[in-house]
Design a binder for these strands. Structure first.
Lengths: 148, 148
DNA sequence: TACAATCTCGAGCGATTTACTCGACAATCC
DNA sequence: GGATTGTCGAGTAAATCGCTCGAGATTGTA
């Protein structure tokens, strides 16, 4: 049930870009150093984020990477699904798998469906801008009590 | 973010045992066939569940496996954490990792903390008895709307 | 007592995934 | 032209996953 480093690193990188929004491109080396990401690995993550329209890159001296859209319009859910693929906890929750054999024999699908839905809803409600804000004011305000 | 087959298969097996609660032991071969689990793999899952006190096994002819406690007292959360280890989506959410370097540089910990807490709360509220009930009446009652 | 049925335990193993590195190349700016 | 940056794809070592197998222990039955 662990997020892979792709998702983790990728979001870190985007937070770094959000931090310098409107200040021109940030170099790979800078992102990597500030967020503790292996530089050559970061390449692949940026490539994926570029493909899906989150990041724009420019080459040459003083080139680098920047957000392709405002941080307030980039949802955490979309970023993570770009980098990780589906976040579904069970295979039978994925689109298209709705009527497999496993489905009948599984017995726990409904709980995971609830959890999956709640997770996606929460991730969809968080934008890079909000992540950035909390990253700046490192107060980490107390999480409200909640339930599924 | 996918549950491994251990958790999936293990819960399936326990549902099968819950289905025959109070009827004496169920054989490995029966569980495996009914819930589509590789028989020799099931061995390891049952061993783990035995170690953690969910299952009691008896050898010899007409031996097999049964629940060590009432189905209504076995929480899905405990079963899954027994089989999967921690369900934490990020390493930095695990006990003991509270003050690592990653923590500072991560920036998304709080969202995942919220999701993780909600997930554990939901899984803690579901017992084998409830899973069984829904498995029997395959109505799969409509999930209530909810949020984190 | 033999023997068959069942669980028990640990070693091993092939395939896949993860988390990278590296090198050749392309673009841009000076 | 050369320095600086990004781009792309191949490759790879290690870990994890999802099992199988075999040798044994235990128990019920004839």
């Amino acid at each position: 049930m662990r997020l892979s480093t792709k998702g983790d690193y990728g979001v870190r990188a985007l937070i770094e870009l959000a931090l310098h929004e409107g200040e021109g491109p940030v170099q790979r080396a800078v992102i990597a150093a500030r967020r503790q990401i292996p530089e050559s690995y970061l390449d692949h993550l940026l490539a994926q984020l570029r493909r899906d329209g989150f990041v724009r890159s420019t080459r040459g001296p003083s080139g680098g990477h920047e957000l392709a859209r405002p941080a307030s319009e980039i949802r955490l859910l979309d970023v993570l699904e770009s980098l990780e693929g589906s976040l579904a906890p069970l295979g039978c929750l994925e689109d298209g798998e709705a009527h497999s054999e496993q489905h009948v024999v599984c017995g726990q699908r409904w709980v995971w469906q609830e959890i999956y839905d709640a997770m996606r809803a929460r991730l969809a409600a968080v934008t890079l801008a909000e992540l950035l804000e909390r990253d700046r004011t490192r107060k980490g305000r107390i999480a409200p009590s909640y339930s599924i």
